[in-house]
Amino acid sequence: MVSKVAVLADAGPEVEHAAAPVISVQNIVHRYETRTALNGVSFDVRPAELFGLLGPNGSGKTTLFRILSTLMIPTAGRAVVMGCDAAQDPASLRRQIGVVFQAQSVDAKLTAYENLWHQGHLYGLRGSALKKRVGEILARVGLADRAKERVETFSGGMQRRIELAKGLLHHPGVLLLDEPTTGLDPGARRDLWQYLQMLRDEEHVSVLVTTHLMEEAERCDRLAIMNEGNLVALGTPTELKSEIGGDVIMLDAAHDASLLADHIRARFHVETTVMGNQVRIEREGGHRFVPDVVEAFPGEIQAISVSKPALEDVFIHRTGHKFWSEESETVSAVDKKDKKKKRR
């Protein structure tokens, strides 16, 4: 799989080509007792890049995140961040990175100020320099007026912002975030992404963020798409989408999808993918193809749609199945329930 990944040209002229990678993931393999979570993954993250790690639940992105943040040693392979090996030199690596976890790591019984004061001590900051920095970062995330209130009184979005402030307090060159928008409403989600982009542009922080949301992945400079422990695609969102020829056509079969797919293949000489009762075709000039295919198989097609390729199509193109399997669908349903609970 890895060898299939084409190294495509850079997105824009801003990115410095020769710069050494900030994060280098080299053929990492990780096995838990019974299953393989990472199956030889390699990629580089460049300086001042907003890099996304996109994959469904269970694709291995959280495992990779744990390895990069030194919480776990990989079974094989190397992870290097700013020149420090995660397995051999965790102490130096930890100084270089800021980490924002999916779980809440702030202490709800402490105030916003106290949480950051505590965090600063862990990074060797102290005294008036620390005081100044805490004030600065609180203003930066827009919580200066709530500094003296306990975090337990904060909304979900505000708690996330404190998490982010914690990760950025010591001026890390690299920021790692694990699904940072979990449980946030769309407004707070947008704010967080704008902030990440600002960090990249103004402070040249390299950001690695894991996500399972396509619309978030679209906002990244480059993406690594993961599936079942393998890297299935690597490149800018635009590049990845452009490798799909033209349009994506989805047909809902009236009877047997695989039979319909066979017929379409024989008749039009196109590649087809069968997903449930749907047949998926990638083809240029989709609008011209639609009347032809409908006329050719009267009564066989229940519905038809044509769309420009999205990142989800890249995933289907590379893996042959949908982004969300049955299992992960239920997980996302639980997510939604959680969100409702929080809002109440």
Partner: peptide
Amino acid sequence: ATQATTLPRPMAPASAGVMLP
């Protein structure tokens, strides 16, 4: 952003030691 060089940032001390944490 025409170059990717990192801005000079105030660096934290090399190690926090044992007592402060």
